[in-house]
Nucleic acid binder design. Structure first.
Length: 455
RNA sequence: GUGAUUGUAGCUCAGCUGGUUAGAGUAUCGGUUUGUGGUUCCGAGGGUCGCGGGUUCGAAUCCCGUCUUUCACCCCA
């Protein structure tokens, strides 16, 4: 038999990795709570129809479908099988699919539970999502998203708050240099309008989104390929070539879209968010208006965000935006939502690459008691109990093993103190305590130990 | 989904153009030290060379398929 393994793009997490992951989740969670968000969870799988068509054509392809149980072919007749129409057959043999993100299931959740929710509803959700993509660096088939959304409020103050959350979380994780890129779908809509290609929103935005990567020339080539007129490309060029601070970029883009009502609206929204954020002030985040930022997800209608850690080559670590009418697909109209997502796995890779995990998080056990035998162990058990009652993580080695083995165990687990209590110490009512880092050793009472470790 | 790429002990890797029982470091375990780890020395276990076919007298080494890894494209956290 060959060695067991797990599916492509998925991972097991060892304890030392989980400790680091939990550090990320806890940091994120505490910021979310601090802003008044409440937790929810939704199932790993949704009905296929809930997910299909929400992420664009490319997205549909990347959704993992779950085969029906039992005789899954019973609804397919042999003619359909012969036609080999994958889409049609998929509908009949798969009714469920793994969630692709947390936003669409959240929209479904809001509609389904609308009478149990007070609006505006602020929720956070930290769960895995699945995408049938080819794995690469920073790209997995199963990964965790940490979402915060405010739904049922049109206020742009929500956008402002989300930028603050980006800033708080990434600052708390000690990421030294990161940029919040911001744009507005209304500006993009206005843009394609004045370019005379209102029907080519997706084609054009996908093309200009690649600006950073492939450069002006190739973006124009791609636009030509999509039958965008030379006139339109010419009009677009200033936007593609502009360099400068937010105000300068803003001036250029404002001028380009000035004849479009929706475009002007987008500029106005963007201005408000940028100004308000500026007046409140941020800790670390750089905020950059990036008119070429598009984001692939189809449901965004207003602000769009993307965050990248600078000096690391790991794609974007966060994303998000406003979606005005996502719930209407599920039958609830006029509810606008806005939210962002932290990619926990990519943040992990960034922290790892920049060596930003605090060392303290490695150890959970503070003291290990050496096991010298039955009598001694029984005595230590009482001491361990007392430490635990005082909130100090401690453990007694379960076997009467050699000293060397027990010390090595403590060493491997990065346990900072080893307590040795043999017959001598038992008689005196003391604990011989060794500091594993300095190698120092001294006799202390249980009370000394508690005070020492509670600091 | 397209085009490349990787796969040898738990981990990191040697193994020349196919040729005897596939090696090293590290980790693990045992002894040196029957109460002292990270930092002594000695020794042991552990691999049907990703898997399945094929070529050959002979394959870890060549060919095909498959899975996995990494990378680019597509797209994205």
């Amino acid at each position: 038999m060959s060695k067991p393994s797990i599916p492509k793009g998925t991972r097991d997490f060892l304890p030392n990795q989980m400790v680091k992951r939990n550090y990320i989740f806890n940091t994120i969670k505490s910021v979310f709570k601090n802003y008044g968000f409440l937790p929810i969870e939704t199932p790993a799988m949704e009905k296929t129809e809930t997910l299909m068509g929400k992420y664009g054509e490319e997205g549909d392809r990347l959704i993992f479908k779950i085969l029906n149980s039992g005789d899954f072919l019973k609804k397919v007749d042999s003619n359909e099988l012969k036609d080999r129409d994958g889409r049609k057959i998929t509908q009949k043999i798969s009714e469920k699919a793994l969630r692709y993100d947390l936003t669409v299931p959240f929209a479904r959740f809001v509609v389904q539970h609308q009478n149990d929710i007070a609006f505006p509803f602020k929720r956070y959700q930290i769960q895995p999502v699945w995408r049938a993509d080819r794995p690469q660096k920073g790209r997995y088939r199963e990964f965790f998203q940490c979402d915060v959304d405010i739904i049922g409020s049109n206020s742009l103050l929500n956008e402002v708050e989300l930028v603050q959350i980006f800033d708080d979380v990434l600052t708390n994780l000690n990421i030294p240099d990161f940029t919040v890129k911001i744009n507005n779908r209304k500006i993009l809509a206005g843009l394609v309008e004045v370019l005379g290609h209102p029907d080519k929103l997706i084609d054009i935005t996908v093309a200009i989104d690649k600006l950073d990567k492939i450069g002006v020339e190739k973006v124009c080539d791609e636009l030509r390929q999509k039958d965008v007129s030379e006139q339109a490309i010419e009009k677009l060029t200033p936007l593609l070539t502009i360099q400068g601070d937010n105000n300068e970029v803003l001036a250029v883009v404002t001028d380009i879209v000035k004849d479009s009502e929706i475009g002007r609206k987008g500029i106005e929204e963007l201005n408000y968010v940028l100004d308000t954020v500026k007046s409140i002030g941020l800790k670390n985040a750089k905020v950059e208006f990036l008119p070429s930022l598009a984001r692939g997800l189809n449901y965004y209608t207003g602000a769009i965000f993307e965050v990248t850690a600078n000096n690391v080559n790991i794609g974007s670590i966060c994303g998000g935006g406003r979606y005005d009418d996502l719930t209407s697909i599920f039958g609830l109209k006029d509810i606008s939502g806005v939210g962002i997502s932290f990619g926990a796995d990519r943040i992990y890779d960034v922290l790892e690459e920049l060596d930003l995990f605090p060392i303290e998080i490695a150890s959970t056990t503070k003291v290990l008691f050496v096991n010298f035998g039955e009598q001694e162990a029984a005595h230590c058990l009482k001491l361990v109990k007392e430490l635990r009652e005082n909130g100090i993580s401690s453990e007694l080695f379960p076997d009467k093993a050699k000293m060397k083995k027990q010390m090595t165990y403590a060493d491997n687990k990065s346990i900072p103190y080893v307590a040795m209590v043999g017959s001598n110490e038992m008689e005196k009512g003391l604990i011989s305590l060794k500091n594993m880092e300095s190698g120092e050793q001294k006799d202390v009472t249980i009370q000394d130990l508690i005070t020492l470790l509670n600091n």
